[in-house]
């Protein structure tokens, strides 16, 4: 009997009883903001891939963003940035979390970011809202480029700031 119960427990765990909610690519976006000695700018990506596992609460989330889709409004700058972060080798920046806490409308993701072939644990605090059959998650966090890149991208021989602010607005269809 005990054996059957244990077996059942693991089978249930293996099976998908939760639902997967896909990201609304039209509404969702991710921005990065960076500074340089000569100026500062913001790049936006409106083509994010994401999914969350939801069973009344968000239990898992996976996001994949293609770096080539970031647009700062200056094609020359974007190209230089893409080439310096070796996008042929590492085309995506990914985020995954399955340690998710919800307190009121504040949601905390303890997860892992993968960028330029390196993975780092990260804690992201965001705001969670339900708007018209969609779950909206909005927030921002800081990223240190030196934790992922051997060489910080440079323009006119001056490097950009190590600290990059990433802000996001994600919509998942219920």
């Amino acid at each position: 009997m005990m054996k059957k119960l244990i077996f059942l427990f693991f089978i249930v765990n293996f099976s998908y009883s939760q639902s997967t909610l896909m990201l609304d690519k039209v509404k969702s976006k991710i921005n990065y903001k960076t500074k340089h000695i000569f100026n500062s700018w913001e790049g936006v990506n409106n083509d994010i891939n994401g999914v969350m596992v939801y069973d009344g609460v968000i239990s898992k989330i996976a996001l994949a963003v293609k770096l080539i889709d970031f647009d700062s409004g200056n094609s020359n700058r974007d190209l230089q940035l893409l080439e310096s972060i070796e996008i042929l080798k590492f085309p995506y920046v990914k985020f995954y979390s399955e340690e998710i806490e919800l307190k009121g409308n504040e949601i905390t993701f303890n997860g892992e970011i993968e960028f330029h072939g390196k993975k780092k644990q990260i804690k992201i605090i965001a705001i969670n809202q339900t708007i018209k059959n969609q779950i909206k998650i909005q927030g921002k966090f800081q990223l240190l480029l030196s934790e992922f890149l051997e060489n910080i991208p440079a323009f006119m021989l001056f490097e950009i700031e190590n600290d990059v602010t990433i802000s996001f607005e994600l919509y998942f269809d219920e």
């Binding site: 080539i68 094609s75 020359n76 700058r77 190209l79 893409l82 080439e83 996008i87 042929l88």
Partner: peptide, 13 residues
């Protein structure tokens, strides 16, 4: 050549 040919965008470019 660059990775992709992005259309010249932005006043500065």
């Amino acid at each position: 050549p660059p990775i992709i040919s992005k259309k010249t965008k932005g006043f500065n470019s």
